[in-house]
Design a protein around this nucleic acid. Sequence first.
DNA 1: AATGAATGAGCCTTCATTCAT
DNA 2: GATGAATGAAGGCTCATTCAT
Lengths: 234, 234, 234, 234
Amino acid sequence: MHDSNRVIEPNAGPAESTRARLLEAAGEEFSSLGYEGATIRSIALRAGANLAAVNYHFGDKESLYEQVVIHAHRMLVPHEPHEEAVGMPPREGLRVWIRSMLGQVLGMQAQRGWQHELILREMMRPTRASAALVREVIGPRFGCLRLMILAIRPDLDDRSLNAFCFSVVGQCLFYRTAGALASHLVGEAAFHALDLDFLAAHICDLILAGLGNRLALPVLSLSQMDQPTGLGGA
Amino acid sequence: MHDSNRVIEPNAGPAESTRARLLEAAGEEFSSLGYEGATIRSIALRAGANLAAVNYHFGDKESLYEQVVIHAHRMLVPHEPHEEAVGMPPREGLRVWIRSMLGQVLGMQAQRGWQHELILREMMRPTRASAALVREVIGPRFGCLRLMILAIRPDLDDRSLNAFCFSVVGQCLFYRTAGALASHLVGEAAFHALDLDFLAAHICDLILAGLGNRLALPVLSLSQMDQPTGLGGA
Amino acid sequence: MHDSNRVIEPNAGPAESTRARLLEAAGEEFSSLGYEGATIRSIALRAGANLAAVNYHFGDKESLYEQVVIHAHRMLVPHEPHEEAVGMPPREGLRVWIRSMLGQVLGMQAQRGWQHELILREMMRPTRASAALVREVIGPRFGCLRLMILAIRPDLDDRSLNAFCFSVVGQCLFYRTAGALASHLVGEAAFHALDLDFLAAHICDLILAGLGNRLALPVLSLSQMDQPTGLGGA
Amino acid sequence: MHDSNRVIEPNAGPAESTRARLLEAAGEEFSSLGYEGATIRSIALRAGANLAAVNYHFGDKESLYEQVVIHAHRMLVPHEPHEEAVGMPPREGLRVWIRSMLGQVLGMQAQRGWQHELILREMMRPTRASAALVREVIGPRFGCLRLMILAIRPDLDDRSLNAFCFSVVGQCLFYRTAGALASHLVGEAAFHALDLDFLAAHICDLILAGLGNRLALPVLSLSQMDQPTGLGGA
DNA sequence: AATGAATGAGCCTTCATTCAT
DNA sequence: GATGAATGAAGGCTCATTCAT
């Protein structure tokens, strides 16, 4: 096969199986280029494997993608950052959870980059491959958020509970889905001023304000009132 | 017929029809399949035109896309829904604005379907074609939102102001960008329960709670507590 | 029709007819890009005319080319440089002829550039269109050369006469047909050292030496012997 | 199979046949139709291969052309006809050299037809593919000619030496580059009378006359006069 | 006399896939 | 287990040409 600028095994340890290298390479390609954008040629190249190896090991581009998603999930589940939030008091846990998700969204976590990237892509446009991912990675993460909000406001009905959860997730995802647009709208400088710390606090405060803790949980409402976003008053 | 930035007469002669049909067909294709997914062959087919007609009228697939975006913008601008919000008191205007945007996002407006779809796509992944769109459609819409929030809380600094605006937009966009995922997470029935009326109220209440109502309308905080989302009271 | 960077009538006097402008534009295109390389789109563009005007006026790309060749011939015939050579003594005429042809080949004549270029192209690869050109432009030019050589050596049979003529023309044309190669072979500097004056003298001397004038025409042989190419001696 | 500059085994296995057939077919197409004229569709068809096979084996139309040129060179180098000339006395060697080149030019060698055609095309319009060709095929051939002329006239400066070499090559190439024109000018019968034997003798005599024969072989001037071209006496 | 619009054929390229070894 | 070779489908684009006005 012709390939003028071919690189042989850029990151392949010989001990690592071809299948594993393909999985890793595919993860990087899919996460950075999307499903359609990625080509199995490029994936095989990056993995230092033959073009046909992809079809040999996975049969299909789509099947490869499925396996990549599952692989990502396996690597991620044991280290889910939201796990830290479960033992905390709900308000604090919420803060941790939001900060963790926002961190992923803003690309603050260099290591395991493509796994998170892949998950975010699956959030925005789920494929047939993502059922497992939703069930085993996103679902638990979402369930954790749901529990914390329910702990803060046990009286919420399902519909409102979901709406609050989606409000949290929506605000976080926005900076990925529409980050480029947002940067255009307010200028790059103003957009960069919205760093992780600030945004996490803003979103958390907003949600807590919305959950309304003046009456139900006055002790926490005081601490909330000190936030710079001006949630306090009255 | 020669210039790229010619003006499209809305009531052009029959000779114009091919170009117009191409534009319409391209809009539908691009909005439903994305830029890469759409093919000029299919567009030409759908428009009942020759394959080369695309090249003749627009020169390029990319130029065609640009023209489609501009076309969408031209069809949308005269009927911008947020215009209604400008004369109202800010809190009411905000409610109208959110409801209007959410209505677009949830695809409640069957007519002019692909134009909104296209704009949402541009929000998520701006192309070189979207500069004008941002400037002339999204920018003003966003500016209106900004003004209303500033009217409610004139003391906000720029950073917080932007964050609030993005919180509004982010929550609205979520149901488009991650609607499928959300539906997966909570079940289709629960997801459908989140109708336009409910969500618009929820988002608006949340934002208003976050903005706090110390100064302007302290009594309003009470009325907010009565909302079905169950913020506050009891 | 779409054309992003269209230039309107770059060199068109309004009084000049479209047909004439097309002819001129086509001449420039054909001479610089060859028949296949030239496109009627570019020709029409350069002439400030409509794309269909070419087919309207000339029916065909090939017919246009024919007309261009004829046009070139009409512009060239009255000013044929070899005309100067007819009245001279044959050896001097030969020198003038060679210098004139070599001058065209080396592109020394900026004015009427494309006409000569076109003729040279036709020499190398005659098309159906060049019958008239050969008959009316190249033929006479060649006939003049033939007569001069015959005047120098009236005893030559037809075959040898033709061979000598072709030797002259071949040496001249070489610097066009294989100039790039020659430049590669000996280096650009050495190639540029072969200027018009030197080459014209070299070719003329070579031919005269080949024609052998020692015995037949001793008076001229003496002058020839003084040439720097060292034809003389013994 | 991966590398651009792999070595072609002349007796490759059956798997190699498609590539070899493509190379051969491409050689024929390129040599008869030129680079632009040839289409990879036709090449693949002629080779009995799939259209995409060209891309698979060579990546590109241009790269295919490069490989074809190199291939032509490899097939030609071992049988270079000018090799015979090196051991001879310079005048005799010159005669052999000219006859050999002229033989190629006049297409007297039916076998390996397209290779020579291709090289001649490269002479007239060198492409980026021809650097190696010039270096390895044309260069040595030319160097041989240069040495022989220098042996005949050691006093020549570089400029004159080059001019003489180009005079030789130019006269030979003429019958390829302008053969059609020449045939038109003098009539087909007269043109066919210029056979290989006659032309080779004519060109060689002409050059030798131009080089002068004062020092080395004064008697040879007499023998030259006996040539059928009728140079010289009475 | 001249033009804008439209067309059909063809070209090069890319991609995922399959097959024989 | 793995690979080199080959394939078919499709895509974007360019070009000369034609047609109705």
